[in-house]
């Protein structure tokens, strides 16, 4: 019996101590994809011990509350490990979601990647 390979959901690149994550999907909606994205993000902290993580949302057009839940859990993990999570390149529609849920208070959100990289 063959198993279907899971498609890659994240592009991960290290800039020194900072791990930059780009999302491949424009829509972070599908429950199974969100589950996989969560697992991959958590493993950066839990297994690879990354402490400085930058999430780049430049490709993201939609996300759901389930995706927000994964980012909240990731933020907790990074903070617990003494690290820092930063988000950048969030478009106006998605930023509104963070704003109305008050999650913009919880997360470090910075406009562009260059400034975000310098914030660590």
């Amino acid at each position: 019996m063959s198993t279907q390979p899971k498609r890659r959901r994240l592009e991960v690149e290290d800039y020194g101590e900072i791990t930059v994550v780009n999302f491949i999907d424009k829509k972070i909606l599908d429950e199974q994809n969100i589950q996989k994205i969560g697992e991959d993000l958590f493993s950066l902290v839990d297994e690879l011990g990354r402490k400085k993580v930058l999430l780049n949302f430049s490709n993201v057009e939609y996300l759901s509350s389930a995706a927000l839940g994964k980012f909240i859990t990731l933020n907790k993990k990074v903070n617990t490990s003494g690290g820092k999570l930063v988000m950048c390149n969030i478009n106006d529609d998605i930023f509104e979601v963070f704003e109305i849920t008050k999650l913009n208070k919880l997360f470090n959100i910075i406009k562009d990647e260059q400034t975000a990289l310098q914030s660590f």
């Binding site: 509350s65 927000l68 933020n75 907790k76 109305i100 849920t101 999650l103 919880l106």
Partner: peptide, 21 residues
């Protein structure tokens, strides 16, 4: 209430709030 300070870090419970908005 997903906006209450004590609930901000809950990973779920925002669906109906987003629909309302």
């Amino acid at each position: 209430d997903p906006l209450a300070d004590e609930n901000l870090e809950r990973p779920c419970g925002r669906g109906i709030f987003l629909m309302r908005h």
